[in-house]
C-alpha cells in the first residue's frame, strides 16, 4: 500500500504526545492543566491502539479506544466536579496548596 504513513511515525507522535502529557501532569500547578495533560496521555495511548489496529486489520483496538474515550469523559466529569467542590471550599485549585494528604 503505497503512500501510507509507516507505523513508526504514529508511534513517535504518540510517544511525543505522551511525554508532553506526562511532563505537564507532573509540572503544572493548576488542576485543570493537569487534567488536560492527562487527556493528552490518554489520547497518545488511543493513537497507538488505532495505529496498530489499522496495521494488523484487527478491530478490537478501535473498540478499546471507544471504551477509553467513554471512561475519559466520565473521568473528566467526576474530576471537574471534584475540582469545583474543592474550589468552593478552598477558593483555589492550585495543587501545591492542596496538601492535606499527608501524615
Amino acid at each position: 500500500m503505497s503512500g501510507t504513513v509507516p507505523i513508526s511515525w504514529y508511534l513517535v507522535l504518540a510517544a511525543l504526545l505522551f511525554a508532553i502529557g506526562a511532563a505537564g501532569a507532573l509540572t503544572r500547578r493548576n488542576g485543570i492543566s493537569i487534567f488536560l495533560s492527562i487527556e493528552l496521555m490518554l489520547n497518545a495511548a488511543n493513537l497507538t491502539l488505532v495505529a496498530y489496529s489499522r496495521l494488523w486489520g484487527e478491530r478490537t483496538g478501535q473498540l478499546v479506544v471507544f471504551f477509553v474515550l467513554a471512561v475519559a469523559a466520565a473521568e473528566a466529569a467526576v474530576g471537574l466536579a471534584l475540582f469545583i467542590a474543592i474550589y468552593r471550599q478552598r477558593r483555589t485549585i492550585d495543587v501545591n496548596r492542596l496538601n492535606l494528604m499527608r501524615w
Binding site: T27, R29, I34, V95, N96, N99, L100, M101, R102
Partner: peptide, 8 residues
C-alpha cells in the same frame, strides 16, 4: 509523604 499531589 509531603501531601503534594504532584510529588505523589
Amino acid at each position: 509523604t509531603t501531601g503534594n499531589v504532584r510529588n505523589y
